[in-house]
Design a protein around this nucleic acid. Structure first.
Length: 227
DNA sequence: TTATGATCATCG
DNA sequence: CGATGATCATAA
């Protein structure tokens, strides 16, 4: 973690300047800028936009369990918007460590830390727009309001209670108003270690935290009011 | 294998 | 037509 990419922004201002260069680019433009090529098909390129934006902005590539801009403490998320400029999908936050979820407090929960400071990069994801023509929007540097933080913590407490009781089988995506739990795996047959309701070691489907579209929608609407 | 980046595909 | 559960790609 000692080595930083040469393009990594040294300040928030530099990061925002780079975001400004990004705004308005089509996905075809983005591919050219990052010297990559567009996915052969949208279904084969699910994480492509996020990856290319990371590259463009000089984020740390790869799957490290730390912020994308580690020196700035900022997490990067691209946000697909539909024709109504509303989030089209939920937003993945992080993997859930089922083996060590006891004794965790909200203050030092991984999901909380990730959401402390997020750079949202919205872009057009409506299927009515040809994939190469979809454009990147203006980035939003966001920190949760007291109310948002409280709502997230509430959901988290509810979810963690069930997880700690070994009730991950009963835990569906219906739980939580803004923060939810969903499968996070290559497919439904993938298994990872966990504890069952009796505290015995068992195997279960890996899970991750996601933000519901309603929550991210409030973030971009909040930014409209500021602008 | 586990983490990251997410969207797809189906169903109510 | 939105949400849930399933799935695709890549890095280390």
């Amino acid at each position: 973690m000692e080595t930083k990419p040469p393009l990594a922004p040294l300040s928030v201002q530099e990061l925002l300047n780079n975001c400004h260069k990004l705004a308005g680019l089509s996905l075809a433009d983005l591919a050219k800028q990052t010297h990559s090529s567009l996915p052969v098909s949208p279904s084969k390129g699910k994480g492509w936009v996020g990856q290319q934006v990371e590259t463009f902005l000089g984020a740390t590539a790869g799957s490290k369990a730390e912020p994308d801009f580690v020196n700035l403490g900022i997490e990067l998320k691209t946000l697909p918007l539909n024709a109504k400029s509303r989030p089209q999908e939920s937003t993945y936050v992080c993997h859930i460590q089922l083996m060590q979820l006891n004794k965790q407090r909200w203050e030092d929960a991984w999901v909380n830390k990730k959401l402390q400071h997020v750079l949202w990069v919205p872009y057009q994801a409506s299927k009515t727009i040809p994939y190469p023509n979809r454009r990147i929007g203006n980035a939003i540097l966001w920190q949760p309001s007291a109310q948002q933080a409280q709502q997230l913590q509430q959901d988290w407490e509810e979810i963690m209670e069930k997880l700690c009781l070994g009730e991950q089988q009963e835990l569906s995506a219906h739980c939580g108003q803004y923060l939810q739990v969903r499968p996070k795996a290559a497919n439904s047959k993938v298994l990872t270690n966990a504890y069952d309701d009796k505290g015995n070691l068992c195997q279960t489907l890996p899970l991750g935290f996601y933000l519901r579209p309603d929550f991210t929608r409030s973030i971009i609407e909040q930014s409209y009011l500021r602008a």
